[in-house]
């Protein structure tokens, strides 16, 4: 049963937009799929290879800008960006990894944080190329959300499957070895620098593709959106941590939860506070409702604390523990 779960889920997701034609929920699912791709990329480099990156936005933004600039300057369809976005993100990842993989642990994380900021500033300052803070606007290809939905779903599925495939091969074993003990890995004939580069480039490619899709879907980007530290880089980490670091399906679950939590706060608990304010006519609640809709970062913080305290391996990693807690009698059954 457990083996078929992903397949069943995939069928449900394929049928979903046909059965339930609500543009709002389709929009949310598209975001979830984009986050599955980004989260899978982050999980590759941080979860499996153990090199925690705080700079995923650099790759995401590069992908988005590649798609946007191709359309803006050359009039090429932004869909070409899906291919070139990934490659350009790798072009950013390659020199960065080459230099910065000499650093270990927290120092690498700090370097990746800097990469994020460097990219954001370049995109802001290079106005002749990127139009700086004005951003780039392109015409969306489709009016309906359904084509985007399926393209995003395909990207998410490809991300998860490719990660799953890679982890079964020599590369996968090498990534895990590097995560567990870099010195031991070297003594086993693993060129740790090279395989960290491989892992980072896979991550960058997936994240860059996600960025290009984001450009195509949203139709507008500016440096603050796609190179955002807390909305992209940190969110990518949260998707990984909440879902389960170093698990294949973790990013998929994490993406769903994080987009849901984000939306939950953005809408003020689905309009709960606004409704309450209207109901009671209280000014205080009205103001509170306004602030709560901006408090999603706070919500993320609380969520991460809870996850790290109670599910240190994430929802997927600690799935059995989670089920055991939620369904106490099932545990007893198994014991007897």
């Amino acid at each position: 049963m457990k083996k078929f779960m992903p397949l069943i889920l995939l069928i449900i997701l394929i049928i979903f937009p046909l059965v339930y034609q609500n543009a709002y929920y389709q929009h949310l699912m598209i975001l979830v799929f984009i986050w599955v791709a980004i989260g899978s990329g982050w999980n590759m480099i941080a979860g499996f290879t153990g090199q925690v990156s705080f700079g995923d936005a650099a790759f995401f933004g590069t992908g988005a800008y590649t798609a946007g600039l191709l359309a803006h300057h050359f009039g090429i369809s932004a869909w070409w960006g899906m291919a070139f976005g990934g490659i350009m993100a790798m072009a950013v990842a390659f020199p960065f990894g080459w230099i910065c993989f000499r650093l270990r642990g927290a120092y690498f994380a700090l370097a990746s944080l800097a990469l994020n900021e460097v990219c954001r500033h370049i995109a802001t300052i290079a106005e002749p190329l990127t139009q700086g803070m004005v951003g780039i606007l392109i015409m969306p290809t489709f009016v309906s959300k359904i084509p985007y939905y399926y393209i995003a779903l395909a990207l998410a599925v490809v991300s998860v499957i490719s990660v799953q495939f890679i982890m079964q091969t020599k590369w996968g074993y090498y990534f895990l070895s590097i995560r567990e003990d870099q010195d031991a890995a070297e003594s086993l004939g693993i060129d740790t620098h090279r395989y960290k580069m491989v892992s980072l480039n896979i991550a960058a490619f997936l994240t860059g593709m996600a960025g290009a899709l984001f450009m195509n879907y949203m139709g507008f980007i500016d440096p603050e959106v796609v190179f955002s530290l807390h909305d992209i880089s940190i969110m990518a980490i949260l998707v990984g941590i909440v879902g389960g670091v170093g698990t294949i399906y973790g990013p998929a679950v994490g993406a769903f939860v994080m987009v849901a939590v984000h939306e939950f706060f953005r809408t003020g608990f689905f309009g709960f506070f606004k409704g309450l304010a209207v109901l009671t006519g209280s000014d205080f609640l009205n103001i509170a409702a306004k602030y709560i809709s901006h408090a999603h970062v706070l919500g993320f913080g609380i969520l991460v604390v809870l996850v790290i305290l109670y599910l240190p391996n994430g929802i997927v990693g600690d799935w059995n523990k989670l089920v055991g807690k939620l369904v106490p009698f099932k545990k007893k059954e198994a014991a007897t």
């Binding site: 074993y173 895990l176 070895s177 031991a184 890995a185 086993l188």
Partner: peptide
């Protein structure tokens, strides 16, 4: 000793 801690013994040896 530097075992690849969270991997099984078999996976440790496969990696090598």
């Amino acid at each position: 000793v530097k075992p690849l801690g969270r991997l099984s013994v078999l996976d440790n040896v496969i990696a090598a």
